[in-house]
Structures are given as C-alpha cells and as structure tokens.
C-alpha cells in the first residue's frame, strides 16, 4: 500500500440549515482511500451518499471535520486552489448530463486540461489517450446528443481520468444504463484502478459494488457497525 491515502475523511459532518430546523445530511464519517483502490458507497436513499461525494470533490464544504485530498486539507484552500484540484487531481462523474452539449466528445474530455491552460494540441492529445483507455476513439468527433447513454458515461469517465488525475468520484454513473453497458463502465473503472488510480463510487446496485475493493455502507449519514466490507480477499488484485 502506498504511504499516503489519496482521500481521507476525518469526522466529517454536513448540516443544512441551522437551529431547530437543522438537517444533518452526513456524519460524522471517517474513512480513507488509498492509491489503486476502488471504493463503493452504498446505502438507502437520503443516507448521505451524494453529500459525501460532493464534499470529497470539493463541490461542497463540510460543516465540521477535515477532508484531505492528496494530502491537502480542503478547508484551507481558496476557491482558486480548489478549482485547481478539480482540474488536476479529482474528476467527477454524475448520473447523467455530464457532458456539455455544445462540445464534441474529444473537446469534453479535453476541457479540464484546457481550463488548466494547456494548448489545444496538447490537450487534444491527452484527451485522445483518455478516450483510448475507454475504447471510444472512434466517437471522438461526435456530439453528446449523438451518443448513447453508455457511451456518454464512458466519455465522462475518460474526462474524469484525463491527464494525471488520480481520483475519480462517481455518483451513480451506471444508474441510467442497462446491465451490459453498466458492466462495461465498471470494467473501465476497474482497469483504471488496477493501473494505480483511485475511485469512489456511489451506487445502489450491488453487482456494480462487487467490482470494488471495499464497500462502505451509509445509513442515516453514518457508517454504522459493519459499515465497511473488504472485498479484496487474500488472493489480491489483478491477473
């Protein structure tokens, strides 16, 4: 195992509103994700899974606790620094509508790199490589409304992992897909994690969670007893 976890939650809590009307959406929750780990997060609706993911991706701020992303404490980061983290370290995949409709698949994948200041040529090159990893180079010049749901999600995954990004956060990415396409997406994720990247995946489908190294169970915003299940097994990973 590598030394430092790529993502660490330390007693993180998220509360909406204040006073008597306050709603605790999450926490306190503590866990860590190492390099090369694929972690699945399951639980009933409203358990706080999406909130957990949003906080992990610096899309939302915790009310209490610390979040460490690639060793950096997110609370101390300015908006600009958080944006940089989103360009270089962590990628996000939503359940649907991940892609900007006006850009081609290739341009969508290249977006974080261009936002980071890379030249169009270099960004396109890396985007091509990312599309290759999800085996979609043939569709690079298509627009999102010309792609099927499964293809769109694979493009979204390519974008989430483009360049040197090492952590992917996915919120039910296979929710709108049929079983075969869903399995394809999970295979892609698994291959990426076998290659050293990490991913945290919110899902309500156990057959997809089964691809993970660990499964976290959230109920009422917490990991109760038995909240973490390790799937690695003694045989280890890979071939």
């Amino acid at each position: 195992m590598s030394a430092q976890p790529i993502l660490a939650f330390d007693a993180v809590t998220r509360v909406h509103g204040a006073g008597p009307n306050a709603v605790r959406a999450l926490g306190p929750v503590s866990f860590a994700v190492s390099a090369g780990e694929l972690v699945a997060v399951m639980g009933p609706s409203g358990a706080g899974k999406s909130t957990l993911l949003a906080i992990a991706g610096a899309l939302d701020r915790p009310s209490e606790g610390r979040v460490l992303l690639a060793g950096e404490d997110l609370a101390t980061r300015t908006h600009a620094q958080l944006a940089r983290l989103r360009r270089r370290v962590v990628g996000y995949v939503f359940q649907e509508l991940n892609l900007l409709p006006g850009l081609t698949a290739l341009e969508n994948v290249a977006l974080p790199l261009e936002l980071d200041g890379l030249s169009i040529a270099r960004a396109r090159d890396q985007a091509q490589a990312a599309l290759q990893r999800v085996r979609l180079t043939a569709l690079a010049e298509r627009f999102p409304d010309e792609l099927s749901g499964g293809e769109q999600q694979r493009v979204a995954i390519a974008r989430a992992f483009v360049g040197e990004r090492s952590l992917l956060l996915a919120d039910e990415p296979t929710g709108a897909l049929d079983s075969l396409n869903g399995e394809l997406v999970m295979r892609m994720l698994r291959e990426q994690c076998d290659g050293g990247r990490s991913a945290v995946l919110v899902t309500h489908d156990a057959t997809h969670a089964a691809w993970a190294d660990r499964v976290l169970y959230l109920r009422d915003g917490r990991l109760g007893a038995g909240g973490e299940v390790s799937l690695s097994g003694a045989a280890g990973r890979g071939a």
Partner: peptide, 13 residues
C-alpha cells in the same frame, strides 16, 4: 450481507 458481498466480489473478479 458482508459474507454475500465478499462472495460476489470473488465471482466478479
């Protein structure tokens, strides 16, 4: 649940 999930993981691998 943990046990079933572990079995599922093995089969998935």
């Amino acid at each position: 649940r943990a046990a079933t999930l572990e079995r599922m993981g093995e089969w998935t691998r």
